[in-house]
Design a protein around this nucleic acid. Structure first.
Length: 584
RNA sequence: GCGCCCGUAGCUCAGCUGGAUAGAGUACUCGGCUACGAACCGAGCGGUCGGGAGUUCGAAUCUCUCCGGGCGCGCCA
């Protein structure tokens, strides 16, 4: 609707008096916006005020010229000049009734924009596979999934990817932790490393490993701990865990150690996969960092950087000249010990995404990663890619409270609340909705007690209730022996002329604009707030009107309106990954 | 110290590329079921948009500065 009004203004612009056009020079794209106050009509344009300066004319005078130039349209009832020079547009009743027709005919595609041809890869969550997802990852998952859905609705081709950090020290620590728990399950007794992963899930995986490998990986405890440096808190816990990993590699051999690592990795990834699937979060591809090493992508990237003279050697390490591309300092890509850094993998990974043909690389990351945005962009530019092809959305932290008290979260200590626990407590729908209710750059306080005890006050139920109520009306309708056909309703939509009805149709007609805006701003919360408002409009209407009236013509029209409401609620909730129940 | 983000009603937060009288939820005070679901609706109360300066027809929004809070600044991932 907004687009149609806008195109009328574009035409009007071209029809302005010649002397005005000459003064205006380059013609602007007219901005059309919804009015906040119904007494200002339905849409307003500030075009006259924008033109006033270059034309050196009175904005109200310009507004009059614009109105005169505006082509006749059945959509517009009347126009007026208001305030400093706004052009207010009042839509015709017909224009609104046409909306209902569009919604019901388009059904689940209502609100979707035409294909843009743009290919976007959304990388999100990408939590290290060293333990189950926790509540912080849940927010990344809910946001990334909803945003992906929105981008699809806005006409983009979207690919959802999870980057698996399965190479590097953290994985080695995981393997060592798992192996030690496995030794414990065979009766070994020792003090667990300060820096090991201490969560219960490691013990459970160790038990599984015992079932599969029996005692094949058991080594005498004294041999394992012989001549190791002191662990924390008195010694150095980092040195200790690294030495322990080295010992594990020696005693088990690379193959045995690899077996332990792969066993743990697979178990944890399976758990994450199941968890996300249950949460309604689909991943198209799990991209392993390990593959970047084995398929030569990292070597290729380094070769490219060398060829472009973007690296130098210092202190035995290889550095990337990130400062040449706007980063604050140069970064190591190959360590003194010959190993490539995580950052090297990251350049290779992002370059590879571009090579797969994606126009936009959209990363959803925790806010603690903000410092790394500049260097990855620098890496992309150095490898010949446009810096704008990378877009990063940072997600602020979730602070978890239990009864007003802050819950500490740390994967390492095992003292944390998992996404799975959260979902079990508040339900998938409430969790999905709550997570995206706030803007991504806003901290989120999630109080478990509150979410549990007041779960029926949850805004998601308010919206779902509107949907269920409409389904219930439809049920009652057939119970009473009435039927409803869309085709019959089209002839009687003019009966929808009350204020509540108009307000409701205005809300419905805004939906496509909300989709565009939410997608453009990467802001699922805009859609969440819209749905809440729409549900409110409906509940208000519901309380003031009876739908199942005897007059068939009127009833057909009334039902058409609420069927349209049901459709838009269902469409919106689907994008947020929330169910639209027929009863609750 | 440098960089990024945040500061809007008692509390939790919306506020689109600058637009007309800054909005929701919650809390509190009233009122509404013999109705298609009261998991609902309506009314009221509540603000110097952190402070100050600037840009202009017009600023919560843009610029500068100060104050307060979060995060980051590894040859970790």
């Amino acid at each position: 609707m907004k687009n149609r009004i806008q195109s009328l203004f574009v035409q009007a612009l071209r029809q302005l008096p010649v002397e005005t056009l000459e003064k205006a020079g380059q013609l602007p794209v007219p901005e059309i916006e919804r009015t906040r106050d119904p007494s200002h009509g339905d849409f307003a344009s500030n075009l006259a005020m924008k033109l006033a300066k270059p034309c050196r004319m009175n904005p109200r005078e310009l507004a009059a010229q614009l109105i005169a130039a505006l082509p006749d349209s059945p959509l517009i009832d009347k126009t007026e000049i208001a305030g400093p020079g706004f052009v207010n547009v009042y839509l015709s009743a017909d224009a609104y009734h046409q909306q209902l027709h569009d919604i019901i005919e388009s059904a689940e595609t209502y609100g979707c924009q035409p294909a843009s041809g743009k290919k976007i890869i959304v990388e999100f969550i990408s939590a290290n596979p060293t333990g189950p997802l926790h509540v912080g990852h849940g927010r990344l998952a809910a946001y990334g999934a909803s945003l992906s859905n929105l981008l699809v609705a806005a006409g983009n081709e979207v690919f959802r990817e999870y980057y698996v950090n399965d190479a590097g020290r953290q994985m080695a620590i995981l393997a060592a932790s798992l192996w030690l728990r496995y030794l414990e399950s065979h009766g070994a007794v020792f003090v667990f490393p300060q820096n090991g992963y201490k969560g219960d899930y490691i013990t459970r995986i160790a038990d599984d490993m015992k079932l599969e490998h029996a005692d094949k990986l058991v080594v005498d405890t004294a041999t394992v701990f012989a001549n190791l440096p002191a662990d924390g808190p008195d010694g150095d816990e980092d040195k200790f865990i690294d030495a322990l990993i080295e010992r594990a590699r020696e005693t088990l051999g690379e193959q045995g150690f690899g077996q332990v690592l792969d066993f743990g990795l697979k178990k944890i990834l399976d758990d994450i996969r199941d968890d996300l699937e249950e949460f309604g979060v689909h991943i198209d591809r799990w991209y392993a960092e390990h593959d970047l090493h084995s398929n030569g992508a990292i070597d290729e990237t380094l070769k490219l950087l060398r060829a472009n003279k973007n690296v130098f050697e210092k202190d035995g390490a290889v550095w990337f000249r990130a400062t040449d591309f706007g980063d604050e300092k140069d970064r190591v890509v190959v360590r003194k010990n010959g190993q490539t850094t995580y950052f090297a993998s990251d350049i290779a990974y992002h370059l590879e995404k571009r090579q797969r043909g994606f126009d936009l690389l959209l990363d959803v990351l925790g806010a603690d990663h903000h410092g790394y945005v500049a260097r990855v962009r620098a890496g992309l530019e150095a490898t010949g890619q446009p810096g704008e092809s990378l877009e990063v959305r940072l997600m602020h932290f979730v602070a978890l409270f239990r009864g007003g008290e802050r819950v500490q979260m740390s994967t390492r200590s095992g003292d944390f609340v998992t996404l799975r626990e959260l979902r079990r407590e508040v339900g998938n729908d409430a969790a999905r909705f709550f997570y995206v209710l706030r803007s991504n750059d806003q901290h989120l306080d999630f109080d478990l007690e509150l979410a549990k005890s007041h779960s029926s006050d949850n805004p998601v139920y308010y919206i779902q209730y509107a949907h269920a109520r409409i389904c219930s009306v439809m049920q009652q309708m057939s119970d009473k022996g009435f039927d409803w056909q869309a085709e019959r309703a089209w002839n009687h939509l003019e009966k929808l002329n009350e204020q509540h009805e108009k307000a409701l149709i205005v809300s419905l007609s805004r939906y496509p604009e909300v989709i565009s805006l939410s997608a453009k701003n990467r802001a699922p919360h805009t859609l969440a707030h819209y749905l809440r408002d729409l549900a409110n409009d409906f509940h208000t209407y519901y309380n003031a009107h009876t739908f199942l009236v005897e007059d068939q013509d009127l009833r057909d029209a009334l039902i058409a309106l609420i069927v349209a409401v049901r459709q838009v609620i269902a469409n919106g909730l689907a994008l947020l990954g929330v169910s639209a129940p027929e009863s609750m």
